[in-house]
């Protein structure tokens, strides 16, 4: 099991060929109170860098991009009822969707936890 991060402030946790995707604690802090999350439904094909989900605070709407390509196997239904999970547990219960990787090679271009921390600090 390994954890990756993107410059778009998403995290990806990979187990076998299944990746779980969410937004980072830093990102939720920047957005403020999350009021709505739209996650992709199972079966959706997403490609690296393309729109995959939407996250909204009161005064901002942000697109969440797919950090890697693949087929969505599950969207986090809990976020529909309780979008505040993204604020309280961004890197746990507040995950967005799981996808089946179509190209594991894409993981290589991503950051690890230390690199992401350095990236955020430099912002």
């Amino acid at each position: 099991m390994s954890l990756y991060f993107t410059k778009e402030h998403e995290w990806i946790q990979v187990e076998g060929d299944i990746a779980t995707v969410g937004i980072t604690d830093f990102a939720q802090g920047q957005l403020g109170d999350i009021v709505f999350v739209e996650v992709p439904s199972a079966g959706t094909q997403v490609s690296q860098g393309g729109d995959a989900a939407v996250v909204e605070s009161v005064k901002a709407a942000s697109d969440v991009y797919a950090p890697v390509s693949g087929e969505v196997v599950e969207g986090n239904a809990a976020l529909e009822a309780d979008p505040s999970l993204v604020n309280t547990a961004p890197e746990g219960e507040g995950w967005f969707f799981k996808l089946k990787l179509s190209d594991e090679g894409q993981l290589e271009g991503l950051m690890n936890a230390d690199e992401y921390k350095a990236f955020v600090d430099s912002q």
Binding site: V35, E56, S57, V58, K59, A61
Partner: peptide, 11 residues
Amino acid sequence: STREQHIRREK
């Protein structure tokens, strides 16, 4: 209001 033009702009 995130549906609206002043936030969503072209979306």
